[in-house]
């Protein structure tokens, strides 16, 4: 019994310690992002890697999510004769919730994991030490551009996901399920406010911070060779996904 309590306690303590270290890395990242020189070259390079290269996967996720939402809500709303509200439901679900969350989870899988793997293999082959030794701070050189790029790019990807999701919903609702197009769009315009979209984008920026910071942290603290890099990569995806979902609830509770 004591042993079990001990194990759980150690696990929780370890988790809290890790959160503390991630927070310290965040402070370090903020500090180094304020010191000149500002490396726009590295920032744009990361925006391309995190953003441009994630577009396809985000479009696919967004469009099919919008389509399946339309199908599911049609099934439910038909029971109340409210089929024309399918568009509103799809648009609100996408902009407020699914756009930012699914985009961030996809970017975590694609780019957050790559950050952990790349920085992790640099750590185990002493390339991080080499940066320090060459008087180049690795937080400034590696982490600041990745975190800033993610904060900027995840909201942009979310806008794309929102848009294609709504288009996908329209396709299913109007073309396949034959809901009246005029009413479908009019309801959407009436009930979806700009605030719904903005709040979704704020969430997306926070998720961008979370996924990049955790990817970089896991990479930066990698030990144990190639196996360690694999472990860090997996852990970064799992931890970032869980924290994104937790933060999602908190942000929703605060903002809506």
């Amino acid at each position: 019994m004591w042993k079990a309590i001990n194990t759980v306690g150690e696990g929780v303590a370890g988790y809290i310690k890790e959160m503390g270290r991630i927070f310290l890395l965040l402070l370090d990242t903020v500090r180094w992002s304020l010191y000149p020189p500002f490396r726009f070259d590295l920032l744009f390079q990361q925006m391309e890697r995190v953003g441009v290269k994630s577009v396809l996967v985000v479009v696919l996720t967004g469009v099919f999510t919008g389509m399946v939402l339309a199908l599911q809500t049609f099934y439910a709303l038909k029971k109340f004769g409210a089929e024309t509200m399918v568009g509103v439901t799809v648009a609100l679900s996408m902009t407020r919730e699914l756009g930012p969350v699914l985009t961030s989870i996809m970017v975590t899988g694609r780019a957050g994991s790559a950050m952990a793997a790349e920085i992790g293999s640099m750590r185990v082959t002493e390339q991080i030490d080499a940066l320090f030794a060459m008087a180049v701070n690795p937080v400034k050189y590696l982490i600041v551009p990745r975190v800033l790029a993610s904060i900027v790019v995840v909201p942009i990807l979310t806008i794309i996901a929102d848009f294609v999701g709504i288009v996908g919903g329209y396709f299913v609702g109007v073309i396949i399920l034959r809901i009246n197009a005029g009413v479908y769009v009019a309801n959407m315009e009436k009930y979806v406010k700009l605030g719904d979209i903005y709040n979704g984008l704020i969430k997306a920026a926070v998720f961008g911070l979370i996924l990049s910071l955790i990817g970089c942290y896991k990479g930066f603290t990698t030990t144990g060779g190639a196996e360690g890099v694999g472990r860090a990569t997996t852990q970064s995806v799992v931890l970032a996904a869980v924290i994104i979902l937790m933060a999602d609830y908190l942000l929703t509770a605060v903002m809506f």
């Binding site: 082959t125 002493e126 390339q127 030490d129 080499a130 030794a133 008087a135």
Partner: peptide, 16 residues
């Protein structure tokens, strides 16, 4: 550190 140069064990070249 600008006074220093260092050669690491496996050279630690940036592989990218």
């Amino acid at each position: 550190r600008k006074k220093f140069g260092m050669l690491f064990q496996e050279a630690a070249l940036f592989d990218s």
